[in-house]
């Protein structure tokens, strides 16, 4: 009897482990963190790309209903790819797009914008990358959608925008009200 209980327990454990590992195999390695708070709490100051003034992010996001914070750099190839999508988003009235220029040279960044167009209402620079880390970013490109009134993060994309993400963003912005 004791023997049977032992057997059943061991086999049960093995079977459970089997199914857990099986499920683990089908998981993708893409990871998006659960945010402990979706409230935005970044109050760091950053310098503008086109002037020497400084501003906090709070001041930047106050204009419209929604803001997108987009982290980009001229040396980042995927940023080039996602740029047309940002330009596309620019046409939305309720939306305000803020660029954070990540670990870049000012000349290159300006050249990039001149070449590909400027979707951003404002661009601040982040030469050391610290501000991006404070935002919880992983690297470039990264896009964060914020509700300006409630000051909460609605959506976060790691990696370049594409058609699917663009549609998703538009739907969120449309449906929120």
């Amino acid at each position: 009897m004791v023997k049977n209980i032992k057997l059943i327990t061991v086999v049960f454990l093995v079977i459970v482990s089997f199914f857990i590992l099986l499920k683990g195999l089908n998981k993708t390695n893409n990871y998006s963190p659960k945010l402990n708070s979706s409230k935005i709490d970044f109050n760091f100051k950053a310098k503008f790309l086109y002037s020497d003034e400084e501003s906090t992010l709070y001041e930047l996001i106050n204009d419209k209903d929604y803001s997108i914070i987009n982290i980009w750099a001229s040396w980042c190839l995927p940023c080039r790819e996602e740029h047309p999508f940002l330009l596309n988003l620019k046409s939305l009235d309720k939306l305000n797009i803020i660029g954070i220029n990540y670990k870049d040279k000012e000349i290159n960044a300006k050249k990039f914008i001149k070449e590909l167009g400027n979707p951003y209402s404002k661009i601040v620079v982040d030469p050391s990358g610290v501000n991006s880390i404070e935002l919880g970013a992983y690297g470039v490109p990264e896009t964060i959608l914020i509700n300006n009134n409630s000051k909460t993060i609605l959506k976060k994309y790691i990696g370049p925008l594409d058609n699917k993400k663009l549609d998703e963003l538009k739907i969120i912005i449309k449906n929120e009200n």
Binding site: Y102, V130, S132, I133
Partner: peptide
């Protein structure tokens, strides 16, 4: 990596 370097500065 850039991520790590910025993290250290932070």
């Amino acid at each position: 990596s850039d991520f790590a370097l910025s993290m250290k500065i932070l």
